[in-house]
Nucleic acid binder design. Structure first.
Lengths: 160, 160
DNA sequence: CTGGAACCTCAAGCTCGCATGAAGTCAAGC
DNA sequence: GCTTGACTTCATGCGAGCTTGAGGTTCCAG
């Protein structure tokens, strides 16, 4: 499998549009793999380029490297992922994307009315705590909102 | 203007659902203001609650405090913002929200096809660099993608 | 065979958005 | 007037996601 088409870290970095330091970091975090030359230099398979592209796309959406790593972990270890593998992985993410799009659309659509009317600061507001509406249960991992503390306040309880 | 209805930092924190340390930090960053009692304690106007709510909502969408600060800076300094002020601010943000929603939708809609078909790693791909398609000029500040470096790579140039 | 670019491994540093702790001050109920 | 809890500043820490630098090694074109 170690063919002449393997990429050096510099080549992968340039073609993926990331820094070499980032690639080493991804490897340290277990997001990508590599093998080594006899001189201990990293060599990457072509397929790694796709993995890196996936990582960057996922980061764009606001996912942490840990979450991305979990997703990538579902890809086969021994062989190069097939189209079917990627397809399965991408399907798993659709709900998350949909949810985030929903949040954004709610924010956009309510920004005028909600902020303008004053409910933003005075009543329970979907703009401020969008999940109360749809799901009382935690959906497990809120995109783009780390450290979401559970204490109740006026903004979630109503005016008191 | 310093009425009996001013809020202590603890009250504001509870009602906004944030920690007091966060409020001090926002103030340090110039996102919110306060006045002081004779004993040097912070007091907040009611309107600050709205500002904080806005900050949290914007953070939810993935905006940095700096970006939020710039937006808030367009609000009047001397007086309590009116509905009209908030309305103007929200209008200014619509394009940014729309753009981000677009990105997400493109990502969602192409995730299956694009990743599955292999174009993700082999050709210029809207999933990976969505802005090349619509705007050659920088639109000024890419949501959710800090440190977006300008070096060209295969993923933006095509296969070479 | 040699020079220089590209690679290697640590270790330390940086930005963001706060949280935490120490040491002291203020406010309010009894 | 005293206690107690909420407040003050300032410093330090934290986790994520890298970047930078030092000091050394490998690769390859000439």
């Amino acid at each position: 499998m170690t063919t002449v088409h393997d990429l050096t870290i510099g080549q992968l970095a340039e073609r993926a549009g990331v820094a070499t330091s980032a690639l080493r970091y991804y490897e340290e975090r277990g997001l990508i793999g590599s093998h080594r030359t006899s001189g201990n230099q990293r060599r990457y398979e072509q397929a790694t380029l796709r993995r890196v592209a996936f990582i960057r796309a996922a980061q764009n959406v606001g996912l942490s490297l840990e979450e991305i790593g979990e997703a990538l972990a579902s890809l086969p270890e021994g062989r190069t992922p097939t189209k079917r593998d990627w397809h399965r992985l991408s399907r798993a993410w659709r709900p998350r994307l949909d949810e985030q799009i929903d949040r954004l659309e709610r924010l956009r659509d309510r920004l005028d009315g909600c902020i303008g009317c004053g409910c933003l600061s005075l009543k329970a507001c979907a703009l401020y705590n969008p999940e109360d509406e749809l799901a009382a249960e935690g959906t497990g991992g809120v995109l783009l909102e780390p450290g979401h503390d559970p204490e109740p306040g006026d903004l979630r309880r109503g005016r008191r």
